[in-house]
Amino acid sequence: MGESRRPLGALFWVCLAFIVLVILAAALANFLPIPSPTAQDYAAINTGPSLHHLLGTDDLGRDLLSRIIFGARVSLVIGFGSIAIGLLIGGTLGLLAGFRGGATDAVINAGSFVILAFPPLLAIVVIVAFWGRSLWKLTLIIGIAAIPQLFRVIRASTMSYANRDFITAARAMGASTRRIIVRELLPNVAPSAISFALVGVAVVIVLEGSLAFLGLSVSLPTPSWGNIIFEGASNNNLQLNPFIALWPALAMFLLLTSLNIVGDRLREHFDVREGGL
């Protein structure tokens, strides 16, 4: 019998390619042959897609393609950055709590409930209002809000492995706690954690959109997908030029779908099938 892994499939690669494309475009935005996202072309205001402006312009004559590419920077940094923070802290604590159990688990778990007790959106609104809304502050706040969720998923997953005999065997062989967590537990927990984290990234990108609607995302005129939709939907722009809101919404939709599919397929692919024919 060979490796009994479920093939990833063509859709996975299409979705992964799209995610990589968005990330590359955002990273290399300064080198792309596109106008500045804040440059105004007074000859073309509220135009639809044209050769000159591939996705058209907004009511200030700014190139939408450029704004979406630069806006992706904000969405991606907040999305991946905050989940990375949450994964690093929540994941480590989850592994530790799930493996050690007992008092360690009780203390960390209680801590996670404290954070969970704040309604996340409200907490973010209050903190951003008082503390300001630069990119890194937003990322940090959302990251902290994501810790308990990621902690709980990874803790539960760790617990399902912590009592298996191979962990006991590793202890009997004299392996240190760190070695057991890194070598034995992490490889088993990682696939489901990564899958969940990718969905988390999607959730945070939507959250950024919601914050933009409340005027709490990064300050204007810095574009983010949320900001662009917000601007496009306000001032009756939606009726004059629906493209302003349509393009970033479409980009967001495609990215979220891709993240979900990639996460799902990865988890299935690395799912160890125990038993079966």
Partner: peptide, 21 residues
């Protein structure tokens, strides 16, 4: 940790005994 390497165990469940990864 060092002393108990002299005592090793073999378990019942063949699947659970080995790290699937």
């Amino acid at each position: 940790r060092r002393a108990r390497t002299q005592i090793q165990m073999v378990f019942q469940d063949p699947i659970s005994s080995l790290n699937p990864r």
